[in-house]
């Protein structure tokens, strides 16, 4: 028996080593390691940054306190400089499930409260998502139209391209309030100014990517069209457009993330009515770091979700085209 165990022991160790190595090659272990490191650093930083406020509060109580009291208080301050992940998760929970399970006179059902109540983060996320999607659609359409024009008309490339590039060198924070005011005068309020700001940011990567993509067909593929005396429209739909698809999706991934940024920035000068941007703004007005972080985390999750959706669309399109990008 003992010899058997002795024989098995090293092989088991090797097996574990192999598994660890496999896990390291995969994504799970590296991601978990980084996440654990961030969590540890976060809690330590929370002690450091909240230390003074925690000590002040403990001193107010006129009682002797220990180091562990300081740590405990630093991690549970109502208005911390840096809230802990636990506090942020608690805030997100309170403002989603918590709202749904509370009683509010105006909204009778839990589902209505979950999606529609002003305290619900789901509601604010939806407000931001709606203008992100509309702005993304507008920006993508504008970006593609500009690219088509630039590719087909030589003078447009010379006259338009410098403006396209210049448009992105202007800080969006400077332009956003102007857009809100101008569109407000024209009677467009609510979602539209935000969508326009999103479109303003997201058309750019689409134009740049598609100008390259619409020119990506190789010379022989273009000569082939000429031997058939194909019309300009036929060359566009049968050659230029399909060969640009592999350039479109990377541009869309950047574009959708910029659309979200645009929507959030657009919510700042509207006086904090609704949306994740409004939550960020009101959080900073009232020094509510916890709710600011909650809005921040939700916007990060939303961005990941949007990019994942574009990636999925890309995979489906590539699969329909025979699996070759």
């Amino acid at each position: 028996m003992t010899t058997e165990v002795a024989l098995h022991e090293p092989s088991r160790a090797a097996d574990l080593g192999l598994r660890l190595r496999r896990a390291a090659q995969g994504r799970a272990l590296p991601v978990a390691t980084v996440l654990a490191a961030i969590t540890v650093i976060w809690y330590l930083a929370a002690i450091g940054l909240n230390h003074d406020r925690a000590v002040d509060r403990l001193a107010d109580a006129d009682q002797a306190f220990t180091w562990s009291d300081v740590v405990g208080t630093a991690w549970s301050l109502e208005r911390p400089v840096l809230p802990t992940p636990t506090q942020i998760a608690g805030n997100i929970w309170d403002n989603t499930v918590g709202v749904a399970t509370s009683r509010y006179e105006d909204l009778p059902t839990a589902i209505e409260r979950f999606f529609g109540h002003r305290r619900s983060l789901v509601y604010h996320t939806w407000v931001t998502l709606a203008s992100t999607l509309v702005g993304f659609a507008l920006g993508t359409a504008l970006g593609i139209l500009l690219a088509v024009g630039i590719v087909h008309v030589l003078t447009l490339e010379r006259s338009l391209m410098p403006w396209v590039i210049a448009s992105q060198t202007v800080p969006i924070l400077a332009i956003a309030p102007m857009i809100v005011v101008v569109l407000g005068n024209a009677g467009l309020t609510g979602m539209w100014p935000k969508a326009v700001i999103s479109a303003y940011l997201s058309f750019f990567p689409v134009t740049i990517g598609m100008v390259k993509g619409l020119r990506a067909a190789d010379p022989l593929q273009r000569d082939l069209m000429r031997t058939y005396s194909a019309t300009g429209a036929q060359v566009f739909w049968m050659l230029r457009w399909p060969s640009s698809i592999s350039f479109l999706f990377p541009s869309l991934k950047i574009g959708v993330a910029l659309s979200l940024v645009g929507a959030i920035v657009g919510e700042l000068p509207t006086g904090a009515q609704a949306g994740l941007g409004a939550r960020l703004l009101s959080g900073s007005y009232y020094g509510q770091m916890v709710s600011m972080w909650a809005a921040l985390i939700l916007s990060a999750l939303l961005a990941m979700l949007l990019i994942a959706a574009v990636s999925l669309a890309e995979k489906l399109v590539i699969a329909a085209r025979g699996g070759q990008p």
Partner: peptide
């Protein structure tokens, strides 16, 4: 015209590549 390289359109199946001149 047959080129040095096949110049097939990679997003089209073989039959749809052969159909290309007819579509045009």
């Amino acid at each position: 015209y047959v080129f040095q390289a096949p110049a097939l359109y990679p997003w089209r199946t073989v039959i749809r590549n052969v159909e290309l001149p007819h579509e045009i």
